[in-house]
Amino acid sequence: MEKIRIVPEGDLAVLVEFENEISTECNHKVSTLNREIINANIIGVQETVPTFRSLLIYYDACVISYGRLVRTLKKLMKQKDVSGSRQQRIIRLPVCYGGKYGVDMADVCSHTGLTEDEVIKLHTEPDYLIYMLGFLPGFPYLGGLDKRLITPRLENPRTVIPAGAVGIGGEQTGVYPLASPGGWRLIGQTPVCLYDAERETPILYKAGDMIHFYAIGEEEYLGIEQQVREGSFPYESLYV
């Protein structure tokens, strides 16, 4: 508890900082507090931004005072004392690896000394923790990449990486929810539409959830892609 720092960030936000490290334990504390705040429905709290090791809380100082908000936060943190190992939601994302779907697969193989099948096997094994979303809507910062898959970013970032691209950038792995410039090595592509502002749930996951990638062939890829296009894809089937 003594490591937790609660400080104002301007007159309309408060920052709760846990340890100064990236770890699942620390991130779990962030998620837990975030959940507690949302459940407590504190009047005057407008929104929260959970990140690796801190939580930014926006509030209206006309509705709740800083002192009162901090007291409420402290109470919430004491209550649960982060024993809450609530079941984490896992979202399973189909990925077509290699070939034209993962144009940098050969680079990753040659850098890591692994075969394509080994890369796919190692990449589809873990449940990756979503530490936070940021940079782009729905861009997940994931933890848990197998160390054998670590491959440096491209020296010259691409100007466009397509939506759905799955890549490795140094010690991180992730998936691009929308087209964007980027320097990650692309190893695969998911046909699932990860971001749609018109959909009831524009982003399919949130910080604290886990992502599990599984490999699919081209035929299945094209099938899902068509379902997504026609609006008939059963998104609920992604959750286990």
Binding site: L12, T51, L56
Partner: peptide, 8 residues
């Protein structure tokens, strides 16, 4: 370590 950014 990246964290949230308030207005201002």
């Amino acid at each position: 370590i990246s964290d949230g950014i308030a207005m201002g």
